[in-house]
Structures are given as structure tokens and as C-alpha cells.
Design a protein around this nucleic acid. Structure first.
Length: 423
RNA sequence: GUGGAUGUAGCUCAAUGGCAGAGCGCCGCACUGUGGAUGCGGUGGUUGAGGGUUCGAUCCCCUUCAUCCACCCCA
């Protein structure tokens, strides 16, 4: 490197305007879907106490993957690695005055101290959406419907992505009938979760290490191979029935091997996967019934999910569904012929802005050719020229940068003309 | 935390133990009231950093830093 530019922090991303365009696009899709289901936007602090996450997130996330540090007063702080504990805390703090069921969504930055790789950075953005205070299977169905609507909205088909659903209570009930002790079931959940992520051999070893008998291991394999298992769960039966109403059933499948890593999930759990199998889960969520109580509030159940911006963007790129983003928001470039026409050019440009047209102005004189080149580069559609001839006649020249076509017209007709052209 | 790969011009990449190159970009000119196309000319580098071997290292060796990829975990 010839230039010794100060480096950015490992695992962070710079959003140059092109990337910012994609981020805003994604954010707008999330807002649109959230609001269409009646959810309100909220935001919490990015800094939380370390205590908030202990025993609520997965141990790995709290102990190894969080940015934890002491402030100047010696208090232990954490850059939030996820939103749900913050949500629970905020709900608990104002529980008596909030109206339930509560429907909230949020989009913001999160941090995890991990080795960056494809689709994973240390600073990332997440869309979180949660419904609290309704414990029905229909509430679970609403969140899954929202997830599916979002996938549909960004242009992904049910052939490309699929939401896999399971229920932890259902699985727990069956593990009990296999004589697996309650304190072991968390580990067995973990085992189930890794069924598709490990080789058969090492999975069997893992099962043996946990102390499962060959018979029990066999029962677990049969269990997670049973695609009709959901019929034994009243909750899942009702949930799938409700999903029919949304017309997105083709996006949703039952999958008994879906468990999820976070310890606070208590009932329905779900993950969206790219069906090509090239990527890991696109997003995940589920029902958590104890979280608000755990942070000091009255027990109120919730269901929600989180979508990371990186993976969804990767998938959208893979399928070519991410739109191109122009470099400038203005379609009109106002040239400056020479210094003597500065006042007139700036005034005219500003009268366009007052009429609601977005205009970029040339501020220092240079060759017109260079100005057109610049206008083209920044993505403007029209260039406007006021030279000595136009100034003398109170006219302007509009040049269509795509076709090269030029028209001279009275200054008074400029606004309407540009609007007619779509400027 | 574990393992693998890669660092050469603004970008994408060549090359050789012996003068470091191309394409794209950028700047200029042809064309001082017209951009994209074309032609011509020009700008471009302590070969990531430090050390070692060598007459000589961008190349071989060691160290270090950075990036990427996979595992782990997860969004």
C-alpha cells in the first residue's frame, strides 16, 4: 500500500452510498411488512449491562462473543449482541402502562466478537419483530406469516427459501417418554440441532458422550425423522391451520430437527433456510415465555424473530433480486457556464428545489464537457445549461443525458417540463 | 478459540533469484457551448511490514500485521 490510510475496526463495514442504498431498501421492506401487520417501531440502547444477558442468551454468545468492557466508573457493559433481552427489559420496565398484546419491531446494529467470514461480521444489522402478550398458536402463526411475507416482498420464492418450524414442548414431551432425564434434554436438544451439521459418525459419538443409550439414540433419530410428528401437537396443528389463511403455506414446512441455540425459547421455534443448502439459516425465531419475568417483570409470553442483514443480502444477490442503486438522488444537474452566471444559475436551481425537484448544482466554472461528464457519472438524467444566449433570452437548455437530445425553452416552463419528463 | 489460503498501481490481476507489467480507472489533447464512443499522449509502485539467506529477493526462509475462506457459534 502506497498510502497509509488509517484502518477501520476489524469486522465493521463501511456503507458507501451504493451499499447504503441497499441497506435503506432492505429497511424499507422491513418497515413495510412490519407496519402492514400493525407493528410499531422502537429502538433500545446499544449499550446494556452485562447482567442482562447472563443465563438469557446462549452461554457462547455472552461469554465468548460479546464485546464486554468496563466504563470509567468500573461498571461492566456490553455492546448488545441481540435485541430480545433489551425488549424484555423495556417491556418489564413499563409493563403496567403498556397495552397488550404488544406488537413492536426494530432495525439496528448489533455486535458479536467473532472471526469475520462470508456473511458474518462483528458489527451487523438486524430486523427484530415481536408479539408479546398473546400465547396462542395463532400468534406464532402471525410471526411466521410476517416472515414469509417479508421473503415474498423481497422477491424470494418458496422454491428458493423455506421456513422450517418445530415446537420445543413437543420434542421435550417425546424425550421424556424415552426416559431422558429433564436436565439432559438441553444437551439432547443441542444434539438434535446438529443432526444435519455433523457427520453421521461424529454425531453418533456425540450422542454416546452425552450418555444416550443406543436405544435412546435410535429413538431420537426416529423422532426427528418423523415428518408427521406435528399432528401430535395441538399447538402446531392450530398454527398450521392459521397459516392457511395467509396464503403463504408453501413457504412453511414442519421440521423436527429445528431446535435453535438460544436457551430462552420455550415453544414454537423456526428458521428460514436457503433451499440450495449453500447457506446456513437465513434467520430464526420462536416463542419465549419466561424472558420478561426473568428481567423482573410480570410473566408475559412473546414470540418473535430476527433477520440479519448480511445473509439476506447475500441470498438476494445470489438470486439477483437486489435492485441497482443510483449514486445520486437527484435526476437533474444544473451546470454553471461561467462565473458571471453564478447568481442566475444558483437562483434557477433553487427555484426547481422549491418546486420539489432534486437538483445538483455545479459550483465552480469548468468546461461544459467536464460538467456533462460529471453529471453522467453521478447518475443524473438531465443537465440544464444557462449560457449567455439563454440568459439574454430568459431561456434554459435541457439536455437529456441518455439520448443527447436538447431543447431550449422559456425559464418559466422549466419546472413543468422537468416534471413531465420525470425529473 | 482451531485450521487453510492470500497480500504486487486507485481497482482486477500478470511476471521473473537479475531494469516490475497489462487491462480498467484517472488526467490531458483531438473537441475552449456539450458527456458516454474512438484515437493519441500522460499519471501511476519502498511488490503489506520487519528480519534472514544471497553478489543480487517481489520471488526462497523466519517473524509479524492485514484480508479472505472453513470450523466453532450464530443473524
Amino acid at each position: 500500500m502506497a498510502r497509509d490510510v488509517v484502518r477501520s475496526v476489524k469486522g465493521t463495514r463501511d456503507f458507501y452510498p451504493e451499499e447504503m442504498g441497499a441497506r435503506i431498501w432492505l429497511y424499507e421492506k422491513m418497515r413495510q411488512v412490519s407496519e402492514s401487520f400493525g407493528y410499531s417501531e422502537f429502538e433500545g440502547p446499544m449499550l446494556e449491562t452485562y447482567e442482562l444477558y447472563i443465563a438469557k442468551s446462549s452461554q457462547e454468545i455472552v461469554e465468548k462473543q460479546s464485546f464486554v468492557f468496563e466504563d470509567r466508573g468500573g461498571d461492566k457493559l456490553t455492546l448488545r449482541p441481540e435485541l430480545t433481552p433489551t425488549l424484555a427489559r423495556m417491556v418489564a420496565a413499563r409493563q403496567p402502562q403498556l397495552t397488550f398484546p404488544l406488537r413492536w419491531w426494530s432495525f439496528g446494529p448489533f455486535w458479536r466478537y467473532e472471526r469475520p467470514q462470508k456473511g458474518r461480521t462483528r458489527e451487523f444489522f438486524q430486523w427484530n419483530i415481536d408479539l408479546l402478550g398473546d400465547d396462542s398458536p395463532e400468534a406464532d402463526a402471525e410471526l411466521i406469516a410476517i416472515a414469509a411475507s417479508f421473503l415474498k416482498e423481497v422477491g424470494l420464492t418458496s422454491g428458493e427459501v423455506r421456513i422450517l418450524v418445530n415446537n420445543r414442548e413437543l420434542m421435550d414431551k417425546h424425550l421424556a417418554t424415552f426416559d431422558i432425564a429433564p436436565e439432559m434434554r438441553g444437551e439432547v436438544f443441542n444434539l438434535i440441532d446438529r443432526r444435519d451439521k455433523m457427520s453421521e459418525e461424529s454425531w453418533q459419538e456425540y450422542a454416546a458422550e452425552l450418555g444416550l443409550t443406543p436405544k435412546q439414540t435410535g429413538q431420537v433419530i426416529d423422532l426427528i425423522g418423523n415428518q408427521e410428528l406435528w399432528r401430535q401437537s395441538d399447538s402446531l396443528v392450530k398454527m398450521f391451520a392459521a397459516l392457511e389463511a395467509y396464503g403463504i403455506s408453501d413457504y412453511v414446512s414442519f421440521a423436527p430437527q429445528i431446535i435453535r441455540g438460544l436457551v430462552y425459547y420455550t415453544g414454537t421455534v423456526f428458521e428460514a433456510w436457503d433451499t440450495s443448502g449453500e447457506y446456513r439459516a437465513i434467520f430464526g425465531g420462536g416463542r419465549y415465555d419466561n424472558l420478561v419475568g426473568d428481567v423482573g417483570g410480570d410473566p408475559v409470553g412473546g414470540v418473535g424473530f430476527a433477520v440479519g442483514d448480511l445473509i439476506i443480502t447475500l441470498i438476494l444477490q445470489q438470486y439477483g433480486r437486489l435492485p441497482e442503486f443510483g449514486k445520486t438522488p437527484s435526476a437533474v444537474f444544473f451546470t454553471l457556464f461561467d462565473q458571471s452566471l453564478l447568481q442566475e444559475s444558483l437562483k434557477l436551481a433553487n427555484s426547481l428545489r422549491q418546486a420539489g425537484i432534486k437538483v445538483t448544482s455545479q459550483l465552480t466554472p469548468s468546461k461544459l464537457g467536464k460538467q456533462f461528464k460529471y453529471a453522467d457519472r453521478i447518475g443524473a438524467k438531465f443537465a440544464i445549461v444557462v449560457g449567455p444566449d439563454e440568459a439574454a433570452n430568459n431561456t434554459v437548455t435541457i439536455k437529456n443525458l441518455a439520448t443527447g437530445e436538447q431543447t431550449e425553452l422559456p425559464q418559466g416552463e422549466l419546472v413543468n417540463n422537468l416534471k413531465a419528463l420525470g425529473g
